[in-house]
């Protein structure tokens, strides 16, 4: 049963990497700026999931902290970029 779980972990990692490639395609061909921001949002979520899969496969808890940090900084950067697209500056007086 462990082997099946390992195959499932490999499959999920492969899916996340392919999803990151899809997000990269949208990041390059995106016609407007908001498409690129959306693609970056998807990209960091998929990267966080890939890190979590590494943590599951290597049974280590270090990857959890990295995933939490990626979630925090990705959210902050998405908010900053959306605010920039909306208002023209990030921190307003």
């Amino acid at each position: 049963m462990n082997a099946v779980f390992d195959y499932a972990a490999w499959f999920a990692s492969l899916c996340f990497v392919l999803a990151m490639l899809c997000a990269l395609v949208r990041l390059f061909i995106g016609p407007a700026a908001q498409d690129r921001v959306l693609a970056l949002d998807t990209l960091y979520i998929n990267g966080m999931l890939t890190l979590l899969m590494l943590g599951i496969r290597s049974s280590s808890t270090v990857y959890f902290d990295m995933a939490l940090l990626i979630a925090l900084f990705g959210f902050a950067s998405t908010i900053a970029l959306a605010k920039f697209l909306l208002r023209g500056e990030v921190i307003e007086p």
């Binding site: 099946v4 779980f5 499959f11 899809c22 998929n46």
Partner: peptide, 25 residues
Amino acid sequence: WVTIPGTLLLVFGGLLVLIGSAGLV
């Protein structure tokens, strides 16, 4: 009790994420 739900959840989650990002493209 870890491997059976874990396998199902990993396959399901991986497919969901892949379909979502394919829809993005």
